[in-house]
Design a protein around this nucleic acid. Structure first.
Length: 484
RNA sequence: GGCGGCGUACCCAAGUGGCUAAGGGAGAGGUCUGCAAAACCUUUAUGCAGCGGUUCGAAUCCGCUCGCCGCCUCCA
């Protein structure tokens, strides 16, 4: 497998520390507000990586944390007039709700910062003892100049960053780039006892503490959004490597942003869409497909139009799945070889290998999806040739099986065509019932039998206006939800 | 200002040295159909922002130019 490593700026062969095992840590969210689609992207991308590594036979230990103590949480609590832990508790629940709907699995371990105060204090004290950190008025700062490799992840020099205008001025810091490991709490703020007085952890230290505790000093993959590379991940590296004297994470993986009008979606710009807003308009599978149809490191422009494209693509898959079922159910007494059998069989044979090859290459989900639709087209073409008999059934069943396998890798195409159709009805034609549709189809069938085409077309038009499309086939008329 | 990234058809999007530049959508034409829908076929980049260079050979590597974005402050 190849994996792009931010540390080297290149794709590298993935070799885990312990053969057959992968230990990965992903920075989760700070729980002070609803999650937006950008959070969903990160969650889905790393969920897919974890799934695929398991699929490839690795024993994966996946850790994703919650930052449950932080300035934003404290401010939010003040605003709402509730305790800080009521805020974090509420948004952890919201997060689980969103993720469950999105089909994102839980991590193996989901640690919280506040449950690792002792570990955080231990590391902080260790860094002070080793001379990497200093205490001032109850705060403890990491001294970046003491760590020779500082800047190796984000590829920047300490001096260049200071030259940049936007570093905050803080009298207590020896160097403006120094960052807090421990912050003294003000009156009324949440506080834990420490050797430096009552206080709370800085932001970066928690990930060093939790990853070390649950995965060890050196582990395989550390992930998060691209905006975390600096300063968060850079600081994690400094703390952890200064403390343990060992390499920290071996592969640094960062997902790209979601953009709106080409600009990064963010809270401060106010151009964000929450997961729950989007799931009110589109099915979760559509969101997953949309996010996976672009490589995880590239930016994705968010729009309803793009989601609709995803919806159409998924519908194409389920329409084919239905066709497979219909074909298999037909009478196969007669052996008939379709003209394109060889081409189809050949493509079918290499399919899983090609999908896996795409995923092996830095989790290229977009390419994997391309392969899926290539097979779908070949299959449809093959079926257009009206093949029949045992061989044909075997090939079609094989296609069904491998398409499902590929879908399961990406956590898409996991439902039946009926389930998909029902999900679509919820969004596209909530007022129409299946009973009504079937009655109309029957009425139209009678009209068709007496060749009353005007009536038949009128009924079809009526349903079309309600968002239902009819398809006349040999076996009878079927219906589906109209997309667009 | 420093650092990083991106620019592939009407739209979205793979491809990072070598068969005819994946795949999806949209458009046009066709096969099928009572008519449709679906499916399939044909068609839409001798071309990969522009200009140079390296090479037998580049969308792919190097340099410059233009445009866009991100990080340097909390941020997935």
């Amino acid at each position: 497998m190849k994996l792009y490593n931010t540390l080297s700026g290149k794709k590298e062969d993935f070799v885990p520390v312990m053969p057959g095992q992968v230990r990965m840590y992903v920075c989760g969210i700070t729980v002070y507000d609803h999650c937006h689609i950008g959070h969903a992207r990160s969650a889905i991308v790393f969920d897919i990586m974890r799934r695929y590594l398991s699929y490839r036979g690795y024993k994966v230990t996946f850790v994703k944390n919650f930052t449950d103590i932080d300035d934003k949480i404290i401010n939010r609590a003040k605003q709402e007039g509730v305790s800080w832990d009521a805020v974090s508790k509420k948004y952890i629940e919201e997060y689980y709700h969103d993720m469950e709907q999105l089909g994102v699995g839980k991590a193996d371990i989901e640690p919280k910062a506040t449950e690792h105060i002792q570990e955080i204090i231990d590391i902080t004290r260790g860094l002070v003892d080793k001379g990497y950190a200093y205490a001032v008025d109850g705060d403890v700062y990491f001294q970046v100049e003491k760590f020779a490799d500082y800047g190796k992840l984000s590829k920047r020099e300490i001096d260049d960053m200071i030259a940049g205008a936007r570093v905050d001025v803080n009298e207590k810091k020896r160097n403006p780039m120094d960052f807090a490991l421990w912050k003294a709490s003000k009156e009324g703020e949440p506080a834990w006892d420490s050797p430096w007085g009552p206080g709370r952890p800085g932001w970066h230290i928690e990930c060093s503490a939790m990853s070390q505790k649950h995965l060890g000093d050196t582990f395989d993959i550390h992930g998060g959004g691209a905006d975390l590379a600096f300063p968060h991940h850079e600081n994690e590296i400094a703390q952890s490597e200064a403390y343990t004297g060992k390499p920290f994470a071996r592969y640094w993986v960062h997902n790209g942003f979601i953009t709106v009008d080409k600009e990064k979606m963010s809270k401060s710009l106010g151009n964000f869409f929450t997961i729950r807003d989007i799931l009110g308009k589109f099915d979760a599978e559509v969101v997953r497909f949309f996010l996976l149809s672009t490589h995880y490191r590239s930016p994705i422009e968010f729009s309803d139009e793009q989601l609709r494209d995803a919806e159409i693509s998924i519908d194409r898959y389920y329409a084919t799945a239905l066709r497979i079922r219909d074909v298999v159910a037909q009478d196969h007494a007669k052996e008939k070889t379709a003209a394109d059998e060889k081409v189809f069989e050949e493509l079918l044979g290499r399919f899983i290998e090609r999908v896996a090859g795409a995923m092996d290459d830095d989790f290229n989900t977009a390419l994997a999806i391309g392969h899926i639709f290539e097979l779908i087209r070949a299959l449809n073409k093959y079926l257009d040739g009206k093949p029949s008999g045992a061989k044909a059934v075997a090939l079609v069943k094989k296609a069904e099986e491998v398409l499902k396998e590929a879908g399961s890798i990406l956590n898409i195409f996991t439902r039946t065509p009926e389930e998909w159709n029902r999900a679509l009805m919820r969004f596209k034609c909530p007022d129409v019932t299946e009973g009504f549709i079937l009655a109309k189809i029957q009425e139209r069938q009678k009209a068709r039998e007496r060749k009353d085409w005007a009536m038949a077309d009128a009924i079809r038009k009526e349903l079309d206006e309600k968002g239902v499309v009819l398809e006349d086939k040999k076996e009878g008329t079927s219906w589906k939800v109209k997309i667009s």
